[in-house]
Write a protein that binds this DNA or RNA. Structure first.
Lengths: 335, 335
DNA sequence: CTGAAAGCGCTAACAT
DNA sequence: ATGTTAGCGCTTTCAG
């Protein structure tokens, strides 16, 4: 299997006895080529094993057919499912995906965006809720459309695809209250993130208000986004006298549940739990975890679809898309 | 925030009154530039907001500082953890990652490899155990180094990073046999994949032989790689009279466990389970699942490190790397 | 230490 | 329907 330094467009043009332009035309499906010469060109391409050089093409056409995806962490189920939705529709439209993990570090986020820009990506999908001023600025300065997926910016200006977090959390909150709980805790990420302060906590308060329960900030908890964080925060939640919790992350929720059960509490009899992301984690435990249902794959897919339109300069009626959510009632709530 | 069509190297050269070559030198850290002119160039770059165009650079230098990663599915925990290891060391060496999901479809795998080649990636990390003749051929024909991560080809010729599957499965098998089981089932993927026929099943048989238990092919099962497959195969495993199982995938293992427990069997008292990938799924269930411990992140990281050497034409002593594995004894085995 | 010049492989007017 | 001609923005000898 020899690694032949591949043929160029010049080689095939030369072989057939036509110009570069003609070869370029058949390669790009331009119909202004006589059928017979098209055949000859195709044959030559076959024989020479010619494969167009996408880099050269990108330089000449100023389109790379590559998009960038910036995300917190591929190993996070929630984001990886969005990524899969993105990737599938990207391929559908013949885009490749340049992937970057940031761990939600603003420094790495800005570096990632700048780097993608220098690689001349045609567009960017951004995931992550840090979105500091600096990140927003560099996004604004990039000469390629950007859409947020499963993420919100404080100002709500960037094109984005999400669910209605306020409404979803409100429903979760009222659900456990209706099940008889009056001390329901909520655990989110840092309140410095818009998605927590401006959406989740707002929804939580709205739920309390609707059920006429007074807000108590000792029932507010902020954690990292992993299993051990759940294990750790659980004790504090219990100490605060809560008998139900709304969690923003499934690993955290499962951590809380396992802590409770390992410490003799019965779920859902003694304590109810609703989580937010409906990943596989919620199905694998016993009991299965009640969760807000998010169309994760679709959020990614719709975001990518929107990006294709933006890259194509199409007019878009609504750039702030909210996809429908559900409440998947399972074993960690009584109803 | 205006989308200024960015400055080129020509603009900064012109502004400073030097040649393109000089600007190129300072941008690329070539020391053959007088300190004073270097300063001037840097200032101009700053003022003009110049960012090198990586596409143009790629065309001229024939290096894109981009590698391709071909994987079955980002949402699969096992592979996404490898991907994270890959991405981290890729960034360390200033490579970007072009990611493609294949669902282990050979057609998509060959397309992915060809596509990456046309994008002129400097190297490729390939994950997935299908590796049909056709895929192998196109890999061989690509003008860029390729290394397998967490995957084996039948011939064992390609550079790769794995654990010793034979040994790992053998240990798992003898472990449950020592715990008193003489009918232990094994569930793998399709036997048409080398990793199953040439590694896992071989290890299983070696374990049986060591413990002087006769091989019984009614105890061999092949499934898809997901939770519901585990739920489904569990019944058959029980019918076959097995009292222990070695599973190749954590979701499958958890599916088996949940089926058993939902049907009144006690794990590990009545039935023992050992799984293979040690993903988060094994920690989240009750009981936690005993698993072969794989250094997943490291497999990805080491594969990527090896790829950097290959891309750099460095000599590599051993291209068939086997990283150490462990047995993480948890709640689904008695010992 | 710096510049000139020739591409890298392809696309995209503009002609014909 | 096909060819000519400029580049795209940068790297890289080769001179000096």
């Amino acid at each position: 299997m020899q690694k032949k330094s591949s043929a160029t467009i010049y080689d095939v043009a030369h072989r057939v006895g036509v110009s570069l332009a003609t070869v370029s035309r058949v390669v790009n499906g331009n119909n202004n080529v006589r059928e017979s010469t098209k055949r000859k060109v195709l044959d030559a391409i076959e024989e020479l094993g010619y494969h167009p050089n996408a880099v050269a093409r990108g330089l000449a056409s100023k389109k790379t057919t590559t998009i960038g995806v910036v995300m917190p962490d591929v190993t996070d189920m929630y984001y990886s499912e969005l990524a899969r939705g993105i990737d599938d529709v990207a391929n559908m439209y013949h885009y490749d995906v340049l992937l970057t993990n940031t761990d939600e570090d603003p420094v790495r986020e800005t570096m990632a965006v700048n780097n993608l820009a220098s690689k001349q990506v045609d567009g960017i999908i951004f995931m992550g809720n840090e979105l500091e001023r600096e990140v927003l600025n560099t996004i604004a300065g990039v000469d390629a459309p950007v859409v947020l997926a499963g993420s919100v910016d404080g100002e709500g200006k960037l094109p984005s695809v999400n669910i209605d977090y306020v409404e979803a959390i409100k429903e979760a909150t009222t659900t456990v209250i209706k099940n008889g709980h009056d001390r329901v805790a909520i655990v989110t990420g840092p309140v410095t993130h818009a998605i927590n302060s401006l959406h989740r906590i707002v929804g939580y308060k709205a739920g309390l208000e609707e059920m006429q329960i007074a807000f108590d900030d000792t029932l507010l908890f902020a954690t990292h986004q992993d299993y051990s964080a759940g294990l750790q925060v659980a004790e504090k939640i219990v100490s605060a006298g809560a008998t139900a919790v709304i969690a923003y992350d499934d690993e955290v929720a499962v951590g809380i549940m396992n802590y409770l059960r390992d410490n003799g509490k019965k779920v859902p009899e003694d304590f109810e739990i609703i989580t937010s992301n409906d990943t596989k984690f919620t199905l694998v435990t016993r009991p299965e975890v009640t969760s807000i249902g998010q169309p994760k794959y679709d959020i990614g897919a719709v975001a990518m679809r929107m990006l294709t339109k933006l890259m194509n300069n199409e007019i878009i009626d609504d750039t702030q898309i909210k996809l429908p959510h559900t409440l998947e009632r399972r074993g960690t709530t009584r109803n």
